[in-house]
Simulated scan of single mutants.
Amino acid sequence: MPNSTKISTTVFEFEDIAKCSSEIQELMSRAVSIRDKAYTPYSQFQVGAAILLENGEIITGSNQENASYPSGLCAERTAIFYAGAQYPNQKIKTIAITASGIYKDNLEPVPPCGACRQAIAEYEQKQKSPIVVYFMGKTGRVKMVESLLSLLPLAFSEDYLK
């Protein structure tokens, strides 16, 4: 039998956003506001992300779809790439994500997709400090991990390219 490694993670859960700190409530509020501006004519699934930088700036992004599906971009990557382009020397402290369908209210917390996990992991590895991730559906419970790498424990990194 081959050797095995057990991987586990801790996910914290809040009953609703009111149970989070005022800083996180404001961040999630910004994510909700931008979620409603998402361009989603095909999936009808809106996502908003708000990023808190170490200098206090908040960067937001929403998902932007395209008829050529791979050409669209998720909310998390829209926000994180903008933050990287405009504030390349600022560390990302926290990201808040909210997602819901236009015709179906998602009440379960919606985590970032795999591509977004990898993109956020790249920034976490680059800055050598964790990025706290909060995520929720349209309303209701909020989940939190203290590091994106908790959601992607075997992340691909630049170390494999050297």
Rank of each mutant, 00 (worst) to 15 (best):
52 L>S: 14
52 L>G: 08
52 L>H: 03
52 L>M: 08
52 L>D: 00
53 L>M: 08
53 L>T: 10
53 L>S: 09
54 E>G: 08
54 E>Q: 14
54 E>R: 02
54 E>I: 05
54 E>D: 11
55 N>C: 12
55 N>D: 15
55 N>Y: 10
55 N>F: 13
55 N>W: 11
56 G>T: 13
56 G>W: 04
56 G>C: 11
56 G>R: 13
57 E>R: 10
57 E>C: 06
57 E>F: 09
57 E>L: 03
57 E>P: 00
57 E>V: 08
58 I>H: 06
58 I>G: 03
59 I>T: 11
59 I>P: 07
59 I>N: 05
60 T>H: 05
60 T>K: 07
60 T>D: 08
61 G>E: 07
62 S>N: 15
62 S>D: 13
62 S>E: 15
62 S>Y: 13
62 S>P: 03
63 N>R: 15
63 N>M: 14
64 Q>R: 01
65 E>I: 00
65 E>F: 07
66 N>C: 15
66 N>H: 15
66 N>E: 10
67 A>T: 05
68 S>F: 11
68 S>M: 10
68 S>E: 05
68 S>W: 07
68 S>I: 15
69 Y>R: 12
69 Y>L: 14
70 P>D: 06
70 P>V: 05
71 S>Q: 14
71 S>Y: 15
71 S>D: 15
71 S>P: 01
72 G>P: 00
72 G>A: 06
72 G>S: 05
73 L>F: 10
73 L>N: 07
74 C>S: 10
74 C>H: 04
74 C>N: 06
75 A>S: 14
75 A>V: 10
75 A>G: 01
75 A>T: 01
75 A>I: 13
75 A>Q: 08
76 E>R: 12
76 E>L: 02
77 R>Y: 00
77 R>Q: 12
77 R>G: 00
78 T>R: 06
79 A>H: 10
79 A>F: 07
79 A>Y: 05
80 I>M: 00
80 I>R: 02
80 I>E: 03
80 I>N: 06
80 I>V: 11
81 F>H: 09
81 F>I: 03
81 F>S: 02
82 Y>C: 06
82 Y>H: 06
83 A>H: 07
84 G>F: 07
85 A>W: 07
85 A>D: 13
85 A>T: 09
85 A>V: 02
86 Q>Y: 04
86 Q>W: 11
87 Y>D: 09
87 Y>E: 04
87 Y>W: 11
87 Y>A: 09
87 Y>H: 14
88 P>E: 04
88 P>W: 09
88 P>Y: 02
88 P>F: 03
89 N>A: 11
89 N>I: 03
89 N>S: 10
90 Q>T: 02
91 K>W: 03
91 K>Q: 04
91 K>A: 12
91 K>N: 14
92 I>Y: 05
92 I>N: 01
92 I>A: 01
92 I>W: 07
92 I>C: 02
93 K>C: 11
93 K>I: 02
93 K>Y: 01
93 K>G: 00
93 K>L: 07
94 T>P: 00
95 I>Q: 02
96 A>L: 01
96 A>E: 01
96 A>V: 01
96 A>R: 02
